[in-house]
Design a protein around this nucleic acid. Sequence first.
RNA 1: GCCCUCAUCGUCUAGAGGACUAGGACAUCGGCCUUUCAAGCCGAAAACAGGGAUUCGAAUUCCCUUGGGGGCACCA
Length: 486
Amino acid sequence: MRVRYAPSPTGYPHVGNIRTALFNWLFARHCGGSFILRIEDTDVARRVEGATEDILDSLRWLGLDWDEGPAVGGNYGPYFQSQRAKVYRPIGQHLVREGYAYPCYCTPERLAQMRAEQVRSKQPPGYDRRCRNLSSKERAQFEAEGIPPVIRFKIPIEGQTRFYDLIRGEIVFDNKTLDDFVLLKSDGYPTYHLASVIDDHLMQITHVLRADEWLASTPRHILLYHALGWEPPQFAHLPIILGPDRAKLSKRHGTTSLIEYRERGYLPEAMVNFLALLGWSLDDKTEIISREELIHHFSLERLSKTAAIFNIDKLSWMNGVYIRQLDIDDLTQRAISFLEKGLPCQVDRPISQDYVHQIMPLIQERAKSLGEIPQLVDFFFVNELDYNTHLLLGKGMSRETATRALAAAQERLGMLDPFDPASVEALLRPLSQELGLKTGEFFGLLRVATTGRTAAPPLFHTMAVLGKERCQKRIKIALAKLHSNF
RNA sequence: GCCCUCAUCGUCUAGAGGACUAGGACAUCGGCCUUUCAAGCCGAAAACAGGGAUUCGAAUUCCCUUGGGGGCACCA
């Protein structure tokens, strides 16, 4: 069993593309087959520099390893279509000789005009077959004029083309609704249709799992296989992923490229889990499922037929689940680069791993992505807290009360040793009562003084990580703020 | 316009004729817990697009309608 993922190098793959890769990979791994990566770079105009690396980058990030393809080689290479040009042309010529294809000399201008007229007269757009039955004389004349022809496939005028789609069942097309599509472009490069059919055959691909948008061109491919005397692979057309507006995912939907999710701090394991469940399900309740279980249980039968909308809220929730499952060492490692990048510039670099390691338990259950960690913890790093003094006077606390409470805390804290969470709590809780303040009021006050915010990780742990000195310094500043006019 | 395709809560989905008072999850809204924010727990609201047909019985089968999506390039 051999499957392939065949992207064209026009940039980083978006989540829809990569989910197709994921399903192919899962299918291969489940069956013990081969997952092949092939780069479809036959469009010279659209080729983007470095895009192949971007594709490999995306696959590697998710851990979708390929058995054959760029960087790993294989027995069916090369795996770049641009390096296989010599394979396609002879086959195209062969098709012409056998009467399955013909050269077409129509200019792009004429074709555009023809199409415009068809649209205007509400006719289905499609090549009008003007060159299909050229006499050898006419052909010779065009050749003499030096017009480089394209090679078009001769669609049978009558009959039907049918095939069995693994997830949609029997599909039938009337041949008369198909037009004579281009096999070889005038620059000598093959079109997708020709190249993919030839390569899938030569690379002995057994199952083609590809996006639904290919369904309509599958009859052309089937016809091509027949013309070439080859056995077509099995097809399975996957439902596509839609944007929130129900249209096919594209750049205008904002974040669609997979790699942007990495940059925003989504974990690859969460991404794999989430993407797998977009169009596939195990049962009626499984949401969190490991890569191994996915491989173990994956099957085409449980693929859904309906297009799915990419639901980022659910992805974020799932990412949070995965973040909470990380052990602290791991979380620390993953957080460092985001902190280096996201913490205010006045914070000294490099960031202390040891310190981060102490902080991570405090935000682990609060972070939905690694990208929001810097904002969650910046008060641990900056020297000067910047907050509005009014925050100290929470719900109607007077300036005097706040001052008295802060001063008392300041004094007691100074004598505290060791300065760990339990000791801080043992000190502060009774003090709250002593001061005649509710714990909510007192702790809230201290929270603002030590972190500059009203919402932060648990106070005692936070203070312990900050350390006695820094807590006292911050309380002192808070006291000063209370004395100044505001 | 033509061809193909899909149709269960707002979203992702379970459901392959009776087990459906249609299940789970995200999001939403309550409540509990609690020093804040989270997390966690409990609960609520929320769907079979419509119409026919088959059947003792239909979310499940068939047909039509409607709606959505995709395709119709010398792009993939």
